[in-house]
Every structure is written in structure tokens, then in C-alpha cells.
Design a protein around this nucleic acid. Structure first.
Lengths: 131, 131
DNA sequence: TTTAGTGTATTAATCACATAATACACCGAT
DNA sequence: ATCGGTGTATTATGTGATTAATACACTAAA
């Protein structure tokens, strides 16, 4: 577990987003146990209370659940998991479309730019995988 | 002049972005005078220093220039203006592509979603313009 | 010269966030 | 029963960014 923190956003927000991305990538399965507050705080070199803040938000959103005093787990509610994925996408789309519309770029140009960027960065990722 | 502020980002950042968007939309012409610090602060109901902070950033980026103690004006450097437009687009693309790639959405789906959203919101804008 | 509106600079206050230090309840394992 | 690790809650403190308050310098115009 490793997160590249930026200093613009609150740390707990970035932690939440990281978990959402992990979920959307299917790197975290339903029911899977996640690190305890103290453990993750140790890994990320942040305060346990900051992790608690992040986990609390995730719990309020139904992303994780906690039984007794055991480490929390990823929700088994498939719909919630699906929504996480969809929201990530739709939020990105919303913001993106808002921006490009304000600049009045033709849709064709946009698609072209995205395709280039998409394939370019995908190629980069592919090279990293060479062994 | 009106800006819908969110409370997540610093106000001065949002002011800068607003001007960049205005520039990208060609709503502000090269050499055009912009409101004085105090005037804009009055309009937006924010502190003059906050506007100053925003203007200072814009001046450092070459977006505006100030002669003596007269209200600042939009730069006449066409290249700078072009860069503003391009950066707005590329930043949006970068963030967007990063997100959708992390969620591993096929490119085709992305394009479809964007087209829908783009046309949908364009339709909305058109309806607002009816008089 | 005076005035009113500029930009600019300095300092103070505010605020959100992160951290820190504790404390408590709970429960499985020993 | 004890111990160690959980989650949870409370309070205090520190800190950096942001915003606010104020003062200053300048200049066009009256």
C-alpha cells in the first residue's frame, strides 16, 4: 500500500479516493479485510486519526463495514461497488466535459486528443510491464 | 461577472481559473481592461486582497499586465493566450484519462459517454438561450 | 494642490487540517 | 483473568494556507 500524496488536498480525502480506485480496479474484493487504522497509519507514515477520518467517511458511504472490533472489510453490496466505479467515471466525465465545453472545442478534436493520450499512456504502462 | 465558488479550493485559485476560462472563450480581448481589485472584490463579495492574490498570480504568468496604477489589462501576447487555452484542455484531458485508465474503462465506452454528456449539456445550454 | 481611485506591501487574524495524546470498550488468544 | 490488538471518541495543540485589515505610494483628474 502506497499513496503519492499531493499537498493540495486533505490527506484523508486522498486516502478515500485511493480506496475507491482500488475498488474500481477490482484490487479489493467484497468482504476483503483492509489494514487496521493503526497499521495503515504506520505504513503511510501518517497519524492514525487521519486514517480513522478516512475510514469513517468510507463507512458512512457504505464502502466498508466493521464488525465488532475487527479490522474493517470491503462491503459485499455489489451495487455500492458498482456505484463507486460509475461515480469515478461520471465525475471525471462531468468535469472534463464542463471544461472543454467552456473552451468550445469541437467534439471531434476532443476525441482525437483523448485517444492519443489514452494510447500513449497505455503504451507507457505496457513498457513498465516488460520483464 | 459572477463566479460560483466552491469551498474546497482557495477562492483566489477559482478566480484565476475563471479568468483563464474567460480568456479561452474569447470573452476577454487582448489589451482589454479588467475590473480593479477593489471593484471586483465588491462584485464578488470577497476581500480585495484575495483578488490581489489572484491578479498577482495572473501577472506572474503573463496573463495580465499593469501600467502605473491603472487597472490591469489582458496581455496582448497572443502566444500566452493560446497557451492558456491549450493548458486548460490538456489539464482536463490528463486528469480525465488518468481517472478512466485507473478504472480500466474501454476507450469506446469513454467516447460514447462523453458524446452523450457533451450533446446533452449542449442541448441544455441551447434551451437557456431561447428568448 | 487636493482628491479619489488605483496598485502594492505588510501584518494580523482566521480557518481547516493534521497531528498528538489519551481514554474507553470490545474481543480473541494465551 | 490477562494481554494485546482492534475500533471509537474526545480534547488539545500545531501548522500552513487563506483571508482580512490596514497602511502606503502613486497618479490622473478636478
Amino acid at each position: 500500500m502506497k499513496i503519492n500524496f499531493n499537498r493540495r488536498e486533505p490527506v484523508y480525502v486522498q486516502v478515500v479516493r485511493h480506496f475507491k480506485q482500488q475498488i474500481a480496479m477490482n484490487m479489493l474484493e467484497p468482504g476483503q479485510e483492509i489494514p487496521s487504522r493503526r497499521e495503515l497509519a504506520g505504513e503511510l507514515k501518517i497519524n492514525p486519526n487521519t486514517v480513522q477520518r478516512a475510514y469513517k467517511e468510507m463507512e458512512e458511504q457504505g464502502l466498508i463495514y466493521t464488525e465488532r472490533n475487527l479490522p474493517s472489510k470491503i462491503t459485499r453490496n455489489e451495487q455500492v461497488l458498482q456505484v463507486v466505479r460509475e461515480e469515478l467515471i461520471m465525475d471525471a466525465v462531468d468535469q472534463f466535459v464542463t471544461t472543454v465545453q467552456s473552451v468550445q472545442v469541437p467534439l471531434d478534436e476532443i476525441v482525437t486528443i483523448i485517444k492519443e493520450k489514452y494510447e500513449q499512456t497505455n503504451a507507457d504502462k505496457g513498457e513498465e510491464d516488460h520483464d
